[in-house]
Simulated scan of single mutants.
Amino acid sequence: MSTSTSEIPVGHVTDVASIRALETAYQEIHGLEVSVTAGTWSNEAIQPPPSGKTAYRFVVSSEKAHLRLKSGDGVRGGIGEAYEDVDPHPARISPGAEEVWPGDALISNEKLGSLDLSGSGVYFEVITVSTDYPAPKLSLLRNLSDHPGGCAPYYGAFRRETIPPAPTASGDPIGSNRVNEHTLDMRIDRQPPPTRHHHGTVTGADGRVYNHTETAVVLPRSVYGRPPVGDGGAGHAVIYRDPLNKGTGDSFTVPLTPGSIVVTPSTTERLYGHCFENAFAMLVAIPGFVVPYELIPE
């Protein structure tokens, strides 16, 4: 059975009321350790980091936007003579600026410093606890390599990780960062097609059970020259209400446009699954893509 109603957190980056509802939903799922918001910047903007936490800002749209960088700033996807090839991220040799595109990730905390931005942009942001993860200041989606898999296993899926999972030396399943993101083009006219799957809660080394969310933030496919979907229809998410007991038998659809936000929660009380069809989107996972997903049977 499929309906067109939605019972999970959904919103749009330009819809203030829906963003407020998302902020509340995230706190109910993840507690006070995690908060989200959406916002904009324009002209010259120096935005300080959150006190004692790390902010992961995922860009949805931008115009003539640049991030000013200092010597030593790490840039995942940084290439060219301006960078020194060091571990874990290329580092700026001298001060400069990089153009900011939709799909890029900007990270700030007290160690990385403020975000010194110009131009304008719209973003979705996750703020969570700071860890020992050596985060880059900027992750440039356009320069990252493709790794098909997960929601889009076909060759050429544009699956690129701006914030990949970072294992800990101790093997804690939670990982050393608490936010992961990859962008990919999920379309039904390619083989293999998008996968129907679900995640679950994550148990840390300390025995604590963490609720899991996977949040899709839809991008305009024209920015990266992604092929149109043709006769495949408008993008949408198929959400499965009870994948463990009902498989694909109980679902509803959520229509998608650039800027749409759809949260698939997996908590100790309720677990949902999903399949994205004809959607080019950033997928943001908390506490990360740290355990294997499970396929949903017919």
Results as ranks from 00 to 15, higher is better:
residue 220 P to T: 01
residue 216 A to C: 14
residue 236 H to A: 07
residue 225 G to Y: 07
residue 250 D to H: 06
residue 243 P to H: 04
residue 204 G to V: 00
residue 235 G to A: 04
residue 208 R to D: 01
residue 223 V to W: 04
residue 223 V to S: 10
residue 242 D to M: 07
residue 232 G to F: 02
residue 212 H to R: 14
residue 228 P to Q: 00
residue 201 T to W: 09
residue 227 P to H: 03
residue 229 V to P: 01
residue 242 D to V: 12
residue 228 P to Y: 03
residue 241 R to H: 11
residue 242 D to C: 09
residue 223 V to E: 07
residue 202 V to N: 11
residue 240 Y to E: 14
residue 218 V to W: 08
residue 221 R to F: 06
residue 246 K to A: 14
residue 237 A to N: 10
residue 216 A to T: 07
residue 220 P to S: 15
residue 234 A to M: 01
residue 241 R to C: 13
residue 226 R to I: 13
residue 244 L to H: 13
residue 238 V to K: 13
residue 211 N to T: 02
residue 213 T to C: 14
residue 225 G to Q: 04
residue 225 G to H: 09
residue 222 S to W: 04
residue 247 G to H: 07
residue 215 T to K: 10
residue 211 N to S: 13
residue 204 G to T: 02
residue 230 G to C: 02
residue 222 S to C: 10
residue 251 S to G: 00
residue 249 G to T: 05
residue 210 Y to G: 05
residue 245 N to G: 13
residue 248 T to V: 08
residue 216 A to L: 12
residue 206 D to Y: 00
residue 234 A to I: 00
residue 207 G to N: 06
residue 247 G to F: 00
residue 230 G to Y: 01
residue 221 R to V: 00
residue 221 R to E: 03
residue 249 G to S: 15
residue 254 V to L: 12
residue 214 E to I: 14
residue 217 V to K: 04
residue 217 V to F: 08
residue 213 T to F: 13
residue 234 A to Y: 01
residue 221 R to Q: 09
residue 248 T to A: 10
residue 233 G to S: 02
residue 242 D to H: 03
residue 243 P to I: 09
residue 231 D to M: 02
residue 250 D to P: 10
residue 211 N to E: 05
residue 244 L to E: 11
residue 246 K to N: 12
residue 229 V to N: 04
residue 202 V to G: 11
residue 227 P to T: 05
residue 214 E to G: 12
residue 226 R to T: 06
residue 243 P to L: 03
residue 215 T to H: 14
residue 253 T to R: 14
residue 243 P to C: 02
residue 219 L to P: 06
residue 246 K to L: 15
residue 252 F to Y: 15
residue 241 R to I: 12
residue 221 R to L: 04
residue 213 T to E: 09
residue 228 P to E: 01
residue 215 T to S: 14
residue 241 R to E: 13
residue 235 G to L: 06
residue 210 Y to F: 14
residue 235 G to I: 04
residue 230 G to Q: 04
residue 213 T to K: 12
residue 224 Y to P: 13
residue 223 V to H: 08
residue 248 T to C: 08
residue 204 G to R: 10
residue 254 V to D: 03
residue 226 R to A: 06
residue 202 V to H: 14
residue 214 E to N: 13
residue 214 E to P: 05
residue 206 D to L: 01
residue 238 V to F: 02
residue 251 S to V: 06
residue 247 G to T: 00
residue 234 A to V: 00
residue 231 D to C: 00
residue 249 G to A: 12
residue 201 T to A: 03
residue 235 G to H: 04
residue 218 V to A: 15
residue 215 T to N: 13
residue 249 G to R: 11
residue 241 R to D: 12
residue 226 R to H: 07
residue 253 T to I: 08
residue 204 G to N: 06
residue 246 K to I: 05
residue 205 A to T: 00
residue 209 V to K: 07
residue 244 L to T: 09
residue 231 D to Y: 02
residue 207 G to Y: 05
residue 250 D to I: 03
residue 236 H to R: 15
residue 246 K to D: 11
residue 223 V to A: 03
residue 254 V to K: 14
residue 203 T to V: 10
residue 211 N to Y: 02
